Each structure stands twice: as structure tokens, then as C-alpha cells.
Simulated assay, not measured.
Amino acid sequence: MNLNIREMNPADENDIKNSLKSISGIGEEQWKWKFFGNPEIKSRIWVIDDDGTLAGHMSLQGVNFNIGSKTMPGCQAVDLFIKENYRRKGLFVKLGKTSLDESGQEGMNLAIGFPNHEALSGHLKYGWKQIGMIPRAFKPLDINRYSDSLKKKPPLLKLALKFKSKEKSIPKHELKIEEIQSFPENIDRFSKLALQNRNAVERSSQYLNWRYCKAPHRKYVKFMASQKGEIKGYIVGYESEKKPGNGYIVDLLVNASDNITARALIKTLENHFISKNVFAVYSWIPNMDGFNQIFKNSGYIFRKPTQPFIVRVNKGFEGEGKVFDFNRWFITMGDSDLH
């Protein structure tokens, strides 16, 4: 073997696309959107080349971060894959370390990841730190249908679900909530204020429109709340094609103290899901003041966290103390490429 780790060139494209299609079902249009469609920052793909044979690849999906009051470029590490006959040779670690170290020289000094448990230990060997487990919750919109979908049904399940998913009434409000097809430019100012002093993927109008309006593989539904012409928040969700009857809240942003807007947006999305025959809703819970209580008041049942969240920085990165503090991070399902 004569192995060389380098950045992808056009000759590698078909091999990588075929690999991603077999692993994740990513087709041509999703490939273009995922890695080359973000107008704000480019993504980078690294390969292990064995004399012209693709032995593995790793993608760094470019994203801008809001870290405290600063905006900085970075990436999400995705799709790290080593072919079967090249495994157990330390290439997982070498590919990951080389791609992130060299991308750091181009200014991508901060990376986040949402690895599965099989990959987690490998990532921790080359500089990643697991800083937390992401809270999650669900709500049955139709208890009978949700119960029928389960393979194992504990005694008194329906009664327990009815009790646990009881929601509190939403106070009266004068919000205008409407479905939107795209995000307006003034969402930039709103999201900056809502996420001030937090670590998060920057939610600019350009990013949000790329992420939720131009995705070729999934149809997201989006609702925005406003009052007297001022944006108060938004919510994004989708119905699963692989698991019919399941819906997901992938993004929800309001000002931290605005419980009424958050609950009104959640209720609006739930009503949409009900009209689409969805019987259960799932969400990660943003790690931000008040969101736990917002979801509890909305009737959501918290489950044991299963998704690790990892962070990696290159030498010389400013603000390490901030990015390794899990309590500073605002994370939703939509920050992960899996949703």
C-alpha cells in the first residue's frame, strides 16, 4: 500500500458519491446541496488515496459559528468512512487528524460533531472532547396510535402517557403565526440577539434558506411568529418518510425569556403534524434558559439522552473555555446533518 491523505480532487468525485450513496443514500442533488450549496462558507472533503484507489474519505461541512459575540468559520465533521479492507490500521484517526489540522490552517479552527457510539471512541483519539449529551423529549399526539406502534408495551402505558403528556394552557397572546416559504433578511438581527452570549451555528437568512428551504431530499415546514411587524421567533419541522407517523422539531428559536412565543410555535407545528397524520413528535431540547420548562409545559416527556456532542479546536484558537462549556451551546436537531 502507498497511502496518501489529501484533499479531494475532481477525479475522486464519482467514487465518493458512490460511497455516500451506499452508506447514507445520498444522491446527486443532495451531494451538490450538502457540500457545495451553502453560500456563506465552503465545505472540504479529504480522502485516503492508495495509488488511485479510494480507501476512505471524510467531509468537513463548512458552517459559521456564533461564539459569544463573535462570528467565526468552522465545520461539522461528517461522513468519515474507511473501506473494510483498510480498517484496523489506524487510518480513521490519521484521516480525521490530518483533515482537521490542515483545514485549521485555512481558518477552520473550530469543529463540532454528532458521532454515533461506535465512532465516538475513535474521534476522541485525535483531539475531540465530548462535552455533553444532548437532552431529548417526545410527545404522543395520538396515544392509541403511538402505543400501537411500539413493539413492547409496558402495563398501563396509555394511562401513563396521558398523565405525563398533559400540557398547560398557553396564555392569550397577540402573535401572528404564519407558514413561510423562505426566511427574510431581518431574521439575521433577530437571531443575533436571541443567541447573544451563546455558542451556536449562526442562523443567518442565507444559512437558514440553504438549510431548510433548498434541501432537495426533505420537505421542511416552517412557521414564523411576529408581533406588530417584529419577528418573535420561528420553528422548523418535518414528517419522517422512513418512519411514517413520526414528526421532528429540528429548529426552534425565540428570545430566551419568551415562553409564550415558543409554546405557541410548538402548538402550531403540532397542529400541522396532526393534519398530516403524525402521531408522535420528537425533539432535542436546546440547552438554553427556560427551554426545558417550555417543553414540559407543552406536554413533552423527557427521555434518557443518547446523542453525544463533541468539539475540537486547533492550536491557537481563542476562546477554548467558552466552546468546551456545554451549558453555553444552543443545539437543535437541524444543526446535525442527520436531520
Rank of each mutant, 00 (worst) to 15 (best):
L3W: 05
E7P: 00
P10D: 14
D12T: 06
N14F: 05
D15L: 08
N18R: 11
G25D: 12
K34G: 02
G37D: 12
N38L: 03
P39T: 05
S43D: 01
S43T: 05
D51A: 11
L54R: 11
H57S: 09
V63L: 13
I67G: 00
G68M: 12
K70N: 14
T71F: 08
G74D: 04
G74N: 02
A77L: 11
E84G: 05
Y86V: 04
Y86F: 08
K89E: 10
K89H: 13
K94L: 08
K97G: 02
S99K: 03
S103L: 06
G104T: 06
G107S: 05
G107T: 06
N109R: 12
L110H: 05
A111R: 01
I112V: 15
G113K: 06
F114H: 07
E118R: 13
E118S: 12
S121Q: 14
G122F: 10
Y126C: 03
M133K: 09
I143Q: 01
N144P: 00
K151F: 12
K153A: 02
L156P: 00
K158C: 05
L161E: 04
K168I: 01
I170F: 00
H173D: 12
I180A: 05
F183A: 06
F190M: 11
N199V: 15
N199G: 02
V201W: 07
V201T: 15
E202V: 01
W210L: 10
W210A: 09
C213D: 07
K214R: 15
K214L: 14
A215N: 15
A215G: 09
P216R: 06
K219Q: 13
Y220G: 08
K222Q: 15
S226E: 15
Q227V: 06
G229R: 08
E230P: 00
V236G: 07
V236R: 03
G237Q: 09
N246Y: 15
G247Q: 10
I249R: 01
V250K: 01
L252A: 04
R263D: 10
L265W: 01
I266C: 05
K267S: 09
T268M: 07
K276Q: 15
A280C: 14
V281C: 14
Y282K: 13
N292H: 14
N292S: 12
S298D: 00
S298L: 02
S298W: 07
R303W: 06
K304S: 09
K304N: 09
T306N: 12
F309G: 03
R312D: 06
K315R: 11
E320P: 03
F326S: 02
W329N: 03
W329F: 04
T332L: 04
M333H: 04
